[in-house]
Amino acid sequence: MKKQIVRILLAKTGLDSHDRGVRLLARSLKDSGLEVIYTGLYRTVEEVVQTAIEEDVDIVGLSMHTGAHNRAFPRLRELLDSQNAGDILVIGGGVIPAKDQRELVDAGAVAEIFGPGTSATTVVDWINKMMAARKE
């Protein structure tokens, strides 16, 4: 059987226009064999959730530079769970203080956060590991 291709939705919500990182990641992931859908700027969490469901993605990656992460990530997780999409993983990127990162991961609002300076390879390896574990 062919290897299944991972589908990922990369999103930017709110008025945050720092998209260099997420666009770079989009390209890197594409180059690593993933199918990437990018929402573009100025989306709402609700739009992101609907998009994730329509596109049946494995992972949603939310990029945040505005400090709204403590609200956005839990809300994203909550909406996905409430719509039977609890199996979709959430990862984060952007500027999120280390303490908040730990709390968000511990609370289960996000599976992992990849801050500035993280190599695309790290992200891809993590994704491959998670997808492989899921199959078993």
Binding site: R27, G33, V36, Y38, T39, Q50
Partner: peptide, 17 residues
Amino acid sequence: TGGALLGDRIRMLRHAE
């Protein structure tokens, strides 16, 4: 690479909800 950037949807997002 077998990957893809599916970029059509970005133009249709006003209908997302």
